[in-house]
């Protein structure tokens, strides 16, 4: 029991520290990308920025509703089944990938319901449509995951990582990695981590919002992004596998932040993609065919090797 509590505490601490660091990077690095200097009031180089934002939000009271509670719950529940490192996993099971994906889908749907609730009088939001689009981006991701599962012949995330001890899956599945990464990026863009969300209209809407609900919303968005990056790490980049003498945990952290910064850079260098028809076109004409081809090729390869012993 004590060990589990310790693990929970560790996971929570890691997540909170990461949220803090990522919020700071998000503020400072995006400012530097604009050739600005970024927030600097609250002390040396604006280190206290996330803290200030946090107090700012809770200083203005607003009623929180039941949705925010569920969002908070599910954003934490994901980490019950997703391993951060080899030891930091609460429940070890054989179907952890499926369970994690289910939680993720539920979380996204909850988030959209929540954003649809806070519709301002001079604004409109078409949350239903956005849910469908964001969920449709899961289809190529699922195809890519399926081909990974076929290769490694397991649904447990831990097993997938362990099976990559020789070489990472990205070498076997470059196309799958590409589609998965683009789908992650588009989800990242739709969620609006950079303060400009598409969930609600308005040019600066991401900076808006008050109360505990906003904090939880922001927290859960970070959780989704962390989840996506960690899943990408686990599936394609070897997870917590160490290289030579470098410890796996350090490798994981390095990979995590590199991917986060790359996502931020891509987000910054691209404009707003809120044209539904274009998003759908990208998805159905590029991502899904490519990932499907990848899946079929993998499947055929495996059948040829295992069933007919051709290769």
């Amino acid at each position: 029991m004590l060990i589990i509590l310790k693990k929970v505490f560790f996971i929570l601490a890691i997540l909170l520290v990461n949220v803090y660091i990522c919020e700071y990077i998000n503020n400072k690095l995006t400012a530097r990308m604009d050739l600005r200097r970024g927030y600097k009031i609250s002390g040396a180089k604006g280190i206290g920025f996330p803290l200030v934002r946090f107090f700012k939000y809770i200083s203005r009271s607003e009623k929180t509703n039941i949705w925010t509670f569920f969002i908070f719950l599910f954003s934490l529940l994901i980490w019950g089944v997703v391993p951060i490192t080899a030891n930091l996993i609460l429940i070890e099971m054989d179907y952890s990938l499926l369970v994690a994906l289910t939680f993720y889908i539920i979380l996204i749907i909850l988030l959209f319901f929540n954003s649809g609730r806070t519709s301002y009088s001079d604004a409109y939001s078409e949350s239903g449509k956005k849910v469908l689009i964001l969920l449709s981006f899961l289809i190529p991701a699922l195809f890519s995951i399926a081909s990974i599962v076929l290769i490694n012949k397991t649904l447990s995330l831990k097993e997938i990582v362990n099976s990559q001890h020789q070489y990472w899956n990205i070498i076997l599945q470059p196309l799958g990695f590409m589609t998965f990464f683009i789908s992650i990026f588009l989800q990242f863009k739709l969620l609006g981590i950079r303060g400009k969300s598409y969930l609600s209209p308005g040019a600066n809407i991401g900076k808006e919002g008050t109360g505990l609900g906003k904090i939880i919303e922001k927290f859960s968005i970070y959780m989704i992004v962390f989840f996506l990056i960690i899943i990408l790490n686990i599936l394609y980049l070897g997870g917590w596998q160490g290289i030579y003498i470098i410890r796996g945990e350090i490798m994981l952290a390095v990979k995590f932040y590199i991917i986060f910064v790359i996502l931020l850079l891509m987000d910054k260098s691209l404009g707003r993609i809120d044209s539904y028809s274009m998003l759908i076109r990208i998805n159905w004409k590029f991502l899904i065919p490519v990932s499907l081809v990848n899946f079929i090729v993998t499947f055929g390869f495996l059948i040829a090797r295992d069933v007919y012993n051709l290769i």
Binding site: M33, D34, L35, R36, A203, K268, S269, L270, G271, R272
Partner: peptide
């Protein structure tokens, strides 16, 4: 236009 499209490089 860039502000509406959130194309930040060109905007700045």
């Amino acid at each position: 236009i860039c502000n509406i499209l959130q194309h930040d490089i060109a905007y700045n």
